[in-house]
């Protein structure tokens, strides 16, 4: 898969560091970004588009539309997309969670006025989201590589494929347009999803941008961690031991366990 992508993007792949550089190899493995040069170029395109189109729209939306109304839009879109989460709950064998998803849909569509209000969350059925990328992860498919797509933002080969499956297979708006209905509905829906997503994450990404020296790398790490949390269904992250020890241990003096050197 990677080879195919690389072949189509000349010099877009990062080369794996040689065995003589174990630290470099470890970083390469951890970042899981085999298309880094290509991705950084796409990230540049994305940031330019963001500055002139997406951010002004999202910013205006945040300024003009009051918070309760924006929350209504978020709730409505989440409710509309219930089939995606429901199908993936089932595909992951999470029957109980699928039941929660169905319960939420019934309560929010009726008592929540067509999904505008998330009354189910107040009744002990909090929102959760599943997608086909997460399902593949549960099935044991590892993320091949990180992938940055302009406008859509950070994703991966596996997760991008999952997005396509969700879109064509489980998304009710796609079903609607399959039935000879006007295409603009799809575009309006995509636009709404994008503005909802960007206006919701704007604060966090702005903060990350200001606190980092390599925003691309910081965003990649944050995305990968958030994604891992979604796949674990919110469980606390396991701590990775370094040389079989707690990396935060009291006397974890790295000079005592020197095994390699960095140039």
């Amino acid at each position: 898969m990677i080879a195919v992508v690389c072949a189509s993007i000349v010099a877009g792949c990062a080369s794996k560091p040689p065995k003589s550089e174990p630290d470099a190899r470890a970083v390469f493995k951890e970042n899981n970004d085999r298309l880094e040069p290509f991705n950084r170029a796409m990230f540049g395109v994305d940031q330019a588009l963001d500055a002139v189109i997406i951010r002004p729209i999202s910013w205006t939306y945040r300024e003009v539309v009051p918070a309760p109304a924006r929350r209504g839009v978020t709730n409505f879109l989440r409710n509309l997309r219930t089939p995606i989460t429901f199908a993936n709950d089932l595909l992951q064998g999470e029957v109980k969670r699928a039941g929660f998803t169905l319960g939420r849909f019934l309560i929010n569509t009726t008592a929540g006025i067509g999904g505008l209000s998330d009354v189910a969350a107040d009744r002990g059925l909090p929102y959760h989201y599943e997608d086909f990328g997460q399902t593949l992860a549960v099935w044991g498919v590892k993320e091949q590589t990180y992938l940055y797509v302009p406008i859509l933002g950070p994703t991966g080969i596996r997760d991008g494929f999952g997005l396509a499956v969700d879109n064509f297979g489980f998304d009710p708006v796609t079903w609607y347009t399959y039935a000879d209905n006007p295409q603009w509905v799809n575009w309006a829906y995509f636009g709404a999803l994008l503005v909802d997503l960007k206006s919701g994450t704007m604060e966090a990404t702005d903060e990350l941008k200001k606190s980092s020296i390599d925003y691309y790398a910081a965003l990649r790490s944050a995305y990968q961690q958030n994604r891992a949390k979604e796949i674990r269904n919110g469980a606390p992250p396991p701590i990775e031991e370094i040389d079989g020890e707690d990396p935060f241990a009291k006397n974890s003096d790295p000079s005592q366990t020197a095994t390699s050197t960095v140039q």
Partner: peptide, 27 residues
């Protein structure tokens, strides 16, 4: 030793970012 917001660890984010800087921008 760490603050984790919505699954994103401050320590891990800095570690991954700085490792990339060390690798790509002059150690």
């Amino acid at each position: 030793v760490d603050v984790i917001i919505e699954g994103v660890s401050m320590a891990i984010t800095y570690r991954n970012e700085y490792a990339t800087v060390i690798q790509q921008n002059g150690g």
